[in-house]
Design a protein around this nucleic acid. Sequence first.
DNA 1: ATTATCTATAGATCTATAGATAATGC
DNA 2: ATTATCTATAGATCTATAGATAATGC
Lengths: 211, 211
Amino acid sequence: MSGRRTRERILETSLVLFNERGEPGVTTNHIAAELDISPGNLYYHFRSKDDILEQLFLRHEAALDEVLAVAGDTLPELEDLWFRLHTLFERMWAFRFLYRNLVELLGRNRRIRLRFARLLGRARESLGRVLSGLALRGALDAPPEQIRATVENVLLVTVFWIGFDAVRHGHEASRGADLAAGVYQVMMLIAPLLREPERTHLLRLAQAYRR
Amino acid sequence: MSGRRTRERILETSLVLFNERGEPGVTTNHIAAELDISPGNLYYHFRSKDDILEQLFLRHEAALDEVLAVAGDTLPELEDLWFRLHTLFERMWAFRFLYRNLVELLGRNRRIRLRFARLLGRARESLGRVLSGLALRGALDAPPEQIRATVENVLLVTVFWIGFDAVRHGHEASRGADLAAGVYQVMMLIAPLLREPERTHLLRLAQAYRR
DNA sequence: ATTATCTATAGATCTATAGATAATGC
DNA sequence: ATTATCTATAGATCTATAGATAATGC
């Protein structure tokens, strides 16, 4: 039974095409043609294009959750944080079609919208815990209000970095986005809140992520 | 000659519909129907849907440029800055369909993409000058690298605030975006770089923008 | 028997244009 | 004469399904 195989290949190919041409520019016909299967066959495996989108989103969500999961009570080292952030960007890049179109896409699909909002909530929770932890430990010096606002800004910059990078250069979206620059931007969001020697340490580390 | 009038009404109605339903969800037929004119008439006034989009963008660009224009050499007061920022958000909100779809839209239309990149460049320039000025004046204390990165983060947060606000709540996009919260987020981006007494002053002011 | 696949197509749009007709301004 | 508008439609898609056929696993 090549069935499992075909379903899988549909998802893989959809992802590739969505990333290449943007989701709105890819029809179920395109996907079927690229795979050399009939449109009918595609619809045997998926109820609709939205169904494909949802399956892709579920996988992406799982991939991000892996990165977000902070081991319960231990406070991660700062170094670990940047590594995670970079991994996060890489996994988002793998599903960049989502971030190219996020608002419109979530506006259309209620299920994905709800899941995304909850995913964002988990990220907020997780990052908030880390920064508050750093404050308790004395590595970070900022009032709770500032911490909350910074958490929100980190979320925003992270979610839209890929889109921003595509939009700020006038020329065609360069093949690869500048993910390192995204990590750098987030670092510079947090740096001003750190105490010495952590801040200098971070600034030195950040140099490696500059373009 | 109701001609001028009709052209104008097409633009106005397009804007309303785009904002309400999202640009991809609005066809030239919808626009014509809403106006009670024939599709043929619409195409008499505009070559294509893209033509309409471009005209709308040009108007929006002009509206933003008004706000960005910093009087040549005088350094604006901080108070003035927040007022401008709020005005900026309001004008962006008036064309929110753009920001709901920015990456995809710029990806499709080369002309708009180039203009947007240049607009962003002017904003970067303008804000960079302001923050550097504050540093010289001693109100702001941060190395040039930090200033540059903060400028970039302010641009990102500003451009995508409307999108972010729509995306972080799971429920249907609430009627009005929380523009004040956007201003607040940008303030909290800059606050950590300020020296006293400017910082405390800003934080107090920021309370008014909290939700 | 069940699962996978194909062919063919209905039905719904959408964009854009051609060509006729009406309205307007000299 | 020129400008504005309408009617009608070609041509291109797109999504999704019905129904026939092939392949597979017991």
